[in-house]
């Protein structure tokens, strides 16, 4: 009897973000007649697709009780590299060499760069036992600096229609960025729920000592996860660059905070081991709807930030209260 009551309570606490989203939509819908329209629906989803990519990677990292502050800068660098390679290629005048890049080649190079930077994060964290907060904070600065070097401080613009498809195109009636983030989410859900790697991620976050002593190669798992987070930040970078038709040197500033917010609102514990990709997706949608609603209601962008801050606090307080009861 008691156990069924408990599981019911647990289920209810899992539903909380969903209920919150529902209530939020209802309120905004009552206040604004533009909210419940098809175009606004796609609009919200398209706007959050970048954050979803970042937040999915962030969820995997946070599940291991880590944090990745570098995603915003990595996004900017990878977007700039892809844009630069696609537009100008690599020229080596001394050897009379020019390498041109197709859209696919340039995109792969961008994603590969993100993966490499993530790998480097993971390597530093595991090899030198640097706290993830510090290691990725350093990467935040390094990647931003590299972006400035690569772009010389100027946007790389005029990338063409082909490039813009990724950020602004439609496929089967759905915006392309929404497709991309949906695929990312599907892969991440599969990874976290159905694979050995996913199980190890939860185990490491739940008890790193016990995982180590169970013969899990925790360093390998960590490096893989940071690599994934870096690659996903790069995917986000491609979408941002494509949507703006321009790689901005200061793109993605502060995005790490939005993604951490989505993870936390989605119920993933910052101390690791507890949470889910679906929760994060909900968290990202809640933030997106909130942003969208505040814009529709003509609330000043400054107030939007204040409101967002309190929503994050509220989410964590509710989560704390739940875990105390459970």
């Amino acid at each position: 009897m008691q156990t069924t009551l408990e599981t019911q309570k647990q289920r209810l606490s899992k539903l909380q973000p969903l209920i919150a989203l529902f209530v939020l939509c209802l309120i905004i819908g009552l206040l604004s007649d533009k909210f419940f329209t098809v175009s606004n629906f796609w609009n919200v989803l398209r706007q959050i697709s970048v954050n979803i990519c970042l937040s999915v990677g962030m969820t995997l990292v946070v599940l291991m009780a880590g944090i990745d502050l570098s995603v915003g800068s990595v996004l900017a660098l990878c977007g700039a590299i892809t844009a630069g390679l696609f537009k100008m290629g690599i020229e080596l005048p001394s050897q009379n060499l020019y390498i041109g890049f197709t859209l696919l080649g340039a995109s792969l190079a961008g994603v590969l760069t993100g993966a490499l930077l993530g790998f480097f994060n993971g390597f530093v964290i595991t090899r030198f036992k640097v706290p993830s907060f510090v290691a990725t904070l350093a990467m935040l600065t390094v990647a931003r600096g590299l972006t400035m070097l690569w772009t010389k401080g100027f946007p790389i613009s005029g990338l063409g229609e082909q490039f813009a498809y990724m950020g602004t195109g439609w496929f089967l009636g759905v915006p392309v960025p929404v497709w991309i983030s949906a695929v990312v989410v599907a892969l991440a859900v599969f990874l976290s729920d159905k694979t050995k790697l996913g199980r190890y991620i939860y185990a490491i976050g739940g008890n790193e000592n016990a995982s180590l002593l169970s013969g899990i190669n925790i360093n390998k798992v960590k490096i893989i996860v940071y690599t994934i987070a870096g690659a996903l930040a790069a995917v986000g970078g491609l979408m941002v660059t494509s949507r703006l038709d321009s790689a901005q040197p200061n793109a993605g500033t502060g995005y790490e905070l939005d993604s951490i917010a989505a993870v936390v609102i989605g119920g993933t514990s910052l101390s690791g081991g507890k949470g889910s990709i679906w929760g994060t997706v909900l968290g990202a949608i809640i933030i997106g709807v909130l942003n969208n609603g505040l814009v529709l209601l003509n609330v000043s962008p400054f107030w939007q930030q204040v409101v967002k801050g309190f929503v994050i606090l509220l989410a964590v307080i509710i989560d704390k209260a739940n875990s105390k009861n459970g």
Partner: peptide, 9 residues
């Protein structure tokens, strides 16, 4: 507790 179980699994 410290080295054996993963309590939330």
């Amino acid at each position: 507790k410290r080295d054996g179980i993963v309590p939330i699994m």
